[in-house]
Every structure is written in structure tokens, then in C-alpha cells.
Amino acid sequence: MSQVEILRVEHLKKYFPVEKSFLEKALTRARHFVNAVDDVSFSVTRGEIFTLAGESGCGKTTTGKLVVRLISPTSGRIFFDGTDTTMVNSETLRILRRKMQIIFQDPYASLNPRMKIGDAVGHPLEIHGIAYHDEKRKKVLEILNRVGLSPSDKFVDLYPHQISGGQRQRVAMARALILQPEFVVADEPVSMIDVSLRTAIIDLMLGLRKDFGLTYLFVTHDLAVAKYISDRIAIMYLGKIVELGDKKTMFSNPLHPYTKALLSAIPVPIPERQRKKTELRGDVPSAIDVPSGCRFRTRCNCVNKFCEETEPELLPVSPSHYVACNQCS
């Protein structure tokens, strides 16, 4: 695999302002922000599957949306194929978007209920002025066949409510892939799909990567799935990456206490299996009121006096393994 970088994210930040009530607006000047993504940097190599994993509220989905520029960052830069997408105008961005697509979590919400499958999948072709009418139909049939919706001429005229959740997710993938993108953000693509169908969707994603030469940014909370499909994994906590490394290192030698706790909490499908547990105290703190210093210190089992003052940086412990912890690095 060539080591060409397709995406580089530098010091990406996204703060969402917190709505204030009428009274609060009148009485106080202070503004509060949800630090959804707080200084995140990483890069993705062409052809790999890079996973952002973490619990709900850690900023993984926001990062995914920022990368395809569905929302604008507060600060930071995103280089896609060498172009800084935070600086370009909307016309250039539209052209760039042909190369990057996103698949959303909920296949029930991401398809327009009034649009036939064929129209939904073919719509991007029209938006980008690539194909119309018969040529469009031909391309739609082709891609539907490829994602396993055959006979595709039957599916073209169905509405989303006439097909199952697994099939809907296949439609969402067809719609993302019809423009032949190079880069796809897959935001929890299997979490709402029945267990017996999940593996088929994952296998489809892996097959498509081979055929189309895709690069995936995979966003998930399920580390067992992440382990199965990714090349590299970044673990996020409260808007920051706490550990990043290739799959093998992350699972055999996790260093950050949070990664350890996450891994030990995953249920293993073996009866009576007593696993070594790393228990955490308390709950995830609010992203409005982030703890000083290391943001994990309120739940960490091995805090020292530095943790309260110094915010740990994401530093390499080996060429392919990065950790943000005062104890580990």
C-alpha cells in the first residue's frame, strides 16, 4: 500500500454555543460553549480504514461531519488531498465533495421517504451534472447490483418504507458510492442494524474498498467491530484523542487508562469468562465544564499531581502509537 496521505486534520476545534434563556441573557454576559471537538489532529493514508471510537458525546461524529465539511470548524485546518477545505469557497467545496461522501447511522432518517430508491441514488449524479435520464438509470442499476440489491430494476421503483433496515443501509451506501468517491466517512453504519445482517454489511464495506480503492473514516462506539475492520484506531474522550495507534498495538498493548477501561468493558461472547476489569469511577463530565489539566483525571485510577495542572499532549511512544497521558509518556 502506498503511503500517500489523503486527509490531514490539524488542531481541529468545534465549539457549539449553549443557548441561554431570556433571563440569563439579560443578567449575564458569560457565554458557554460545548467543546465538542477540542484540538484534534490526525492523518489518514490512502486506502486505509481509520476508526474514531469512543463513547457517546466524545465528539467522534462531529469530527466526521467536520471532515466532509457538513459543518464548519471553529478553528483548525482540514487538508483533503492537499487542499485546505476550511479556506475554499463553496463552489470548490462542491467539486471536492464528489470525492468525499458520508454514510449516516440511521438508515430510517437518511433517506427521503417520498423519493424512490432509484431517484435517491441517482440524485447526486444530477447535482454534479454527471449523468441524466437513461445513462443515470444505467449507473443506478449498476451500483444497486454492486451493493447487493438485486434484481436492481425491482428496487429502483420502491420507496424506502417498502424495504428493510439492512437494505436501506445498502441504499445509503449506493448513494454515497455512485459518484465514485475516494474517501467515505461511515458514521456508525451498522449500529442500528440487526445482528444477523451486520456482518454482511461490514463485508460489503470491505469488498467495496477493494473494488473502488476507497479510504474509510469509520466512526463507531463498538470496539469489537472496530477491531474487525480497521487498520488504525483513535480513541476519543471529551473532544480529544487520548490514544492513537494501529489496531494490533491498540488491542495488545493499550496504554491510556481510558482505553484499558473501554476494552475491558466489551462483552466477550464466552460463558463464564472472568476478565480483568479496569473499573472507572463516576460518569463522563459535561463537555461545557471540562476538568482542568487532563480531562480524564476525574475518573482515572492513577492520577498524580501533574494531571490537575498539565494537559497531556498526544505524544508518540513508538512510531505508530500515540498516547496523551502524563503517566504513560
Binding site: 444477523s196 445482517l197 454482511a200 474487525y228 488491542f251
Partner: peptide, 26 residues
């Protein structure tokens, strides 16, 4: 069906696990 389910769930304790999908849908 049970056999298929067991083969289709990822297990983080296994190295290089191969998952097998159950074809079709319920």
C-alpha cells in the same frame, strides 16, 4: 441460526478472526 450468529459476532479476544455472515434477512 445459532451457529451462524456465533460466527458473525466479533470477539475482541481473538486475533485475525474471520466473520461469516448469515445470508438473507428475517
Amino acid at each position: 441460526y445459532t451457529k451462524g450468529l456465533l460466527k458473525s459476532i466479533p470477539n475482541i479476544e481473538l486475533v485475525d478472526q474471520k466473520l461469516e455472515a448469515i445470508g438473507g434477512s428475517p
